[in-house]
Amino acid sequence: MESILKYFPELKEEQIQKFESLKALYSEWNARINVISRKDMENFYLHHVLHSLAIARYTSFFERATVLDVGTGGGFPGIPLAIALPQVEFHLVDSIGKKIRVVQEVKNALGLENVVATQARAEGIKNSFNYIVSRAVTTLPEFAKWIKGKLVKNNPPGALPPSVLYLKGGDITHELIPPVKVLEVKDISEWFEEPFFETKKLVVFQV
């Protein structure tokens, strides 16, 4: 939890309390439904929460922006982003029902009114969104196929254009090919100094 406060000192007390509640909630649900590696729970805030919040370091979106989190698993990056950015609307989807159940229970426990959780494949979502986020669910070209047509045409003047913000580690050079239209690749280590982030990147692209 210290790492969250270190990089996001502007958080309000209500947000801090929600972040503090996360580990106990996920520990409880992880014991029933394995959504996070049991060993990785020791690094819960660093590997899952802070990693998700790299997107919030890049942009705070705009008020009432709609964001689709594809392949959210147990709620990452969507749940930490929803706590940090309460003015933004998040729709979290995953094809696995038990994972979405965990997301729904965490949402209810924290009272996150800006979160909708749905069991669905990305291709089955009918709406279009201002932004799409995800965390290493597949290769970038494959992901681009899943979300084709899911971004709105335009965002308000001055806002980040409709785009995908994708968290990925390792060498991704071979993935930066059509239909992926790269806007920017950011090294997360520019924001967070912990060794875990040395190979982690945020890829901002359109399709």
Rank of each mutant, 00 (worst) to 15 (best):
S37G: 15
P9T: 11
N43S: 15
T72Y: 08
V185M: 02
E193K: 15
G73M: 01
I96G: 07
G71D: 07
Q119R: 15
V35D: 06
S134I: 08
I83K: 01
T118S: 06
Q119C: 14
Y26I: 01
L176E: 05
N108V: 11
I172P: 01
L167R: 00
V115T: 11
S21M: 11
E42C: 11
V180G: 02
K148T: 12
L68F: 02
S21K: 13
F143G: 01
E2W: 12
G73R: 00
L85A: 09
E20M: 06
L85K: 06
V106R: 01
T138N: 14
L68T: 01
G97W: 11
L202W: 01
T66P: 08
K168N: 00
P162D: 07
R32K: 12
A82Y: 04
K39R: 14
L112R: 04
G73A: 04
F129Y: 15
K186G: 02
K150A: 06
I100H: 01
W29C: 03
E184H: 11
E142H: 07
E42H: 14
G124M: 07
E20K: 14
P156V: 00
L11G: 08
Q87L: 13
G78A: 14
I177Q: 10
E14F: 09
T173H: 02
L110G: 03
A117E: 07
A54C: 11
N108G: 14
G124L: 08
I83A: 06
T138F: 10
A136S: 13
H51F: 06
L176H: 02
K148F: 14
T66I: 11
S3H: 06
Q206A: 09
N154F: 08
G124P: 00
D171F: 11
K200C: 04
F62H: 10
I172C: 08
G75T: 03
A54T: 10
I132A: 03
G111W: 07
E10L: 09
L92I: 07
A144C: 13
L110E: 04
D94M: 10
K186L: 10
